[in-house]
Design a protein around this nucleic acid. Structure first.
Length: 477
RNA sequence: GUCCCGUUGGUCUAGUGGUUAGGACUCAGGAUUUUCAUUCCUGCAUCAGGGGUUCAACUCCCCUACGGGAUACCA
């Protein structure tokens, strides 16, 4: 429908996918869906020192689990590949030469020691810490001497020295920066690899990206990028900078204050559906009060224009609540599938599907994260342990009479179904004159190990007749 | 320090030049349930402050405060 709209998610593979990055990916994806454009994945792996083994593979897996399938990217090669920046160095080299030829960039031979010293001096003089441009005007001879010496160099952008630049951001509208605050950005590192700024601009142009949707931390780099586009004579894409996700103390969401990796949330039993829904609502909202959306619903109502300007705190409490809602409302069989991982981990063998689903069902209304599911299944899979208080309740005269009565009445009946259970409950009250807190708590305690919990018929159904009898016999003194 | 961006209850947010400023989470109380949980109802609490503009400002403008981001041969 709109083939001109092309957006991209361009993570660098330095670890697990961060929830902030998930939201960036999601917004890109949703915008593409909304307008019928293309969603592209590009791997920004230009920093050799930060390379993390397996990070790219994890990224693919996580995106897939989240349902964020890309139209173009690694393994889905469109005509704009390769989609790994580490495989595009030759492309960058060509364009860097063009910049050098045009006088928009220059070789800088300053070592990191020189740079450190320079920054300290500037700071001491109350100046900012920009590069002072001492290599800007080296003569041909000076450059050649350095090269002959085998001196390492970087290539820097020759940023204008005065005036200001104003651009339009979809979220923030008009933004202005004075040029004299912008650093002569390094474009090519001494190892020959491009920096983010260079690679990003070239790739976005070559891949015909129409909208750059990324985190706000990039806003202050926009002037450099725009200067690059201008230097090449290219039309820049539309800019859209997303507000940051925040810790409870309002700083940028970070690992120090809890989990931030999507994978961690998944492992704890937050559903992909929840994560997508929750993260979508951090910084964006449709008109009105609706809070529940599936991924495809979001793709219909999403709009860049409705993205907020201010950062949002990632509130675990609300995430928990929302996950609880999803656990209760998604089809039981689906939840059952998700839950199997945790049963396996706990070493609980699933006896039969019907009882298993009953079990998941009683747990789902009591938990917020799926990793808590086995806690509610535990009484069915291991021997019950009683505290002294429990024993006191189980040992009373009326409790004992109650257990014997139930054993006697269950033992010869062909099956233990809800009808029989309700009848026995009734007769316990009528014939034994045991009722209320002398009736239910002891029974539940004897069978489930806790006075609180699921309904008796449910417990007995899952336990089945044999085990019910065993457990009653266990508490007869 | 400098530059940039932001500010509706504790948190996520809806909203308009004239509203009793709406919803959700949390918290408190209550109802339902044999219990727990679920569910439902009720309540607490907000337009950062100060100046303008205007008949009228939470809404538009300016200043201040506060918060955040950027200030790397990381992205």
């Amino acid at each position: 429908m709109n083939n001109k709209i092309r957006v991209r998610f361009a993570p660098s593979p330095t670890g697990n996918l961060h929830v902030g990055s998930l939201r960036t990916a999601l917004y890109n994806y949703l915008y593409a869906k909304k307008v019928g454009g293309k969603f592209i994945l590009r791997i920004e792996d230009t920093d050799q020192t930060r390379y993390v083994d397996g990070a790219v593979e994890n990224l693919f897996i996580t995106l897939k689990k989240m349902g964020l399938e890309y139209d173009e990217g690694p393994g889905e090669n469109g005509k704009f590949g390769p989609y790994y920046q580490s495989k595009r160095t030759e492309i960058y080299n060509k364009y860097v030469q063009e910049l050098l030829d045009k006088g928009k960039a220059y070789k800088c031979f300053c070592t990191s020691e020189i740079l450190d010293k320079m920054r300290k001096e500037r700071k001491a003089n109350g100046l900012d810490t920009r590069y002072d441009g001492r290599c800007r005007n080296l003569t041909e001879k000076e450059i050649n001497d350095h090269l002959q010496n085998g001196d390492k160099y970087v290539i820097r952008l020759k940023i204008p020295q005065d005036g200001e630049i104003t651009f339009y951001d979809i979220v923030r509208d008009k933004v202005t920066f004075p040029w004299n605050m912008i650093d002569d950005q390094v474009l090519v590192k001494s190892d020959g690899f491009p920096t983010y700024h260079l690679a990003n601009v070239i790739d976005d142009h070559l891949m015909e990206i129409s909208h750059v949707i990324r985190g706000e931390e990039w806003l202050s780099s926009v002037p450099k990028h725009l200067f690059l586009y201008e230097s090449f004579g290219w039309k820049p894409p539309k800019m859209c900078h997303l507000p940051l996700l925040l810790n409870p103390d309002k700083s940028k969401l970070s690992k120090r204050q809890g989990d931030v990796a999507v994978e961690d949330f998944l492992n704890k039993g937050y559903l992909p559906e929840t994560l997508i829904n929750f993260v979508a609502l951090l910084g964006w909202h449709a008109p009105g009060n609706e809070e529940f959306y599936t991924l495809s619903e979001l793709g219909k109502v999403f709009s860049l224009k409705r993205i907020n300007k201010s950062g949002s705190v990632f509130d675990i409490e609300k995430l928990n609540w929302m996950n609880g809602q999803y656990l209760r409302n998604i089809d039981l069989k689906v939840i059952g599938e998700y839950a199997k991982t945790y049963f396996k981990k706990a070493g609980y063998h699933i006896p039969n599907e019907k009882h298993y689903l009953e079990l998941v069902d009683i747990a789902r209304s009591r938990i917020h994260k799926l990793d808590e599911v086995t806690e509610f299944a535990k009484p069915f899979f291991s021997e019950l342990k009683f505290t002294d208080d429990d024993k006191a309740i189980l040992g009373t005269e009326s409790s004992q009479r109650l257990f014997k009565f139930w054993i006697d009445n269950i033992i010869d009946s062909p099956k233990l179904d809800e009808e029989l259970i309700n009848e026995l409950l009734r007769r316990s009250t009528q014939e034994l004159e045991i009722k209320g807190k002398n009736l239910y708590p002891p029974l539940r305690l004897a069978l489930y190990g806790s006075a609180h919990g699921p309904e008796l018929p449910t417990i007995m159904d899952i336990l089945e007749k044999e085990k019910v009898l065993t457990r009653f016999n266990n508490v007869i003194t």
